[in-house]
Design a binder for these strands. Structure first.
Lengths: 151, 151
DNA sequence: CCTCCTTTGACCTTTTCTGACCTTTATTAT
DNA sequence: ATAATAAAGGTCAGAAAAGGTCAAAGGAGG
């Protein structure tokens, strides 16, 4: 497992006990023996707002980085998801939406994986790049509607 | 025996002890003194889903290739369904396959509906008629693969 | 000879990690 | 107060480390 995943795991497990976490970038970097900017990389690739996290920070003396997990209720999440899809969406964003829906209990993990598969780059390879986003959005909305229907 | 079969043999015997195997493409290529892309050839011709294998991979630093053998039971049934899909499929045939899988207990009704939605005429409206079947097949296969993957 | 399977190599994309340089905030000296 | 300094964190480009794709050359068998 790479450095990025080690750090991400460390943060996640810290977030399990406390639901909001505050840390020093420099300290964390030192603990893992890496460049401080590596921490920013971890945060931006693993703890983005899209993935359901809020990251705040402050510079200067006594600076810090605070990480929080945000979750809304299942119903609200589904509404929000449907609204947020729009006319076009890329695979990474769709996956992030699904992760949040799963976390909120609005869909099951199996449903999440299934939907992600249907919209994956792999599934849509062969579709012209300029149409891919729109098609993915259509598929996504149909599936979300089906979920809402059943639930 | 050609290179391809040698590598395939190696992988198969590794899969006998461990039921899931993770390897480096570059390392394997070096061990057999061949081009890295040869490994992809082996995987696609000898370890395809149709043949009962699931192959996942990741690029970038710390990348890997993971190969798993699918055992008999509902999973294998999904793999067979996958094989039967072919390069193109119409909505009616897809629905029939889903009905069978559901009846056999290989998928849940909810999963069936979800898959049907992803492949529906409505979701794929806007795709040129001559490409629709192939696209539906791709989406279907990715979803079936994901079902087999789960658990 | 023709066809199908193999093998390679050139080129591409994705993911990770670092280092140089920048901005913000707090503290300390004048 | 003000200016200098120290102590954070932020950004970004680029190198490095994987794996992916595809067309074309090579070979074995019919």
């Amino acid at each position: 497992m790479g450095l990025t995943d080690l750090v991400a795991q460390f943060i996640r497990s810290a977030l399990e006990s406390d639901q909001s976490l505050e840390l020093r970038r420099g300290e964390l970097a030192e603990r893992f023996g890496c460049a401080p900017s590596q921490i920013n990389y971890v945060l931006s690739t693993r703890f983005s707002p899209e993935q359901g996290y809020i990251v705040e920070s402050r510079r200067g003396g006594g600076g810090y980085i605070r990480i929080r997990r945000v979750e809304a209720g299942p119903r609200l999440m589904l509404m929000h998801a449907l609204a947020s899809v729009g006319n076009s969406i890329d695979a990474a964003s769709a996956a992030a939406v699904l992760t949040n829906l799963d976390a909120a209990g609005a869909i099951t993990p199996a449903e999440g994986r299934l939907m992600a598969a249907a919209m994956s780059e792999r599934a849509l390879a062969g579709v012209p790049a300029e149409r891919k986003g729109a098609l993915r959005a259509e598929i996504f909305k149909q599936m979300l509607l089906t979920c809402a229907d059943a639930g």
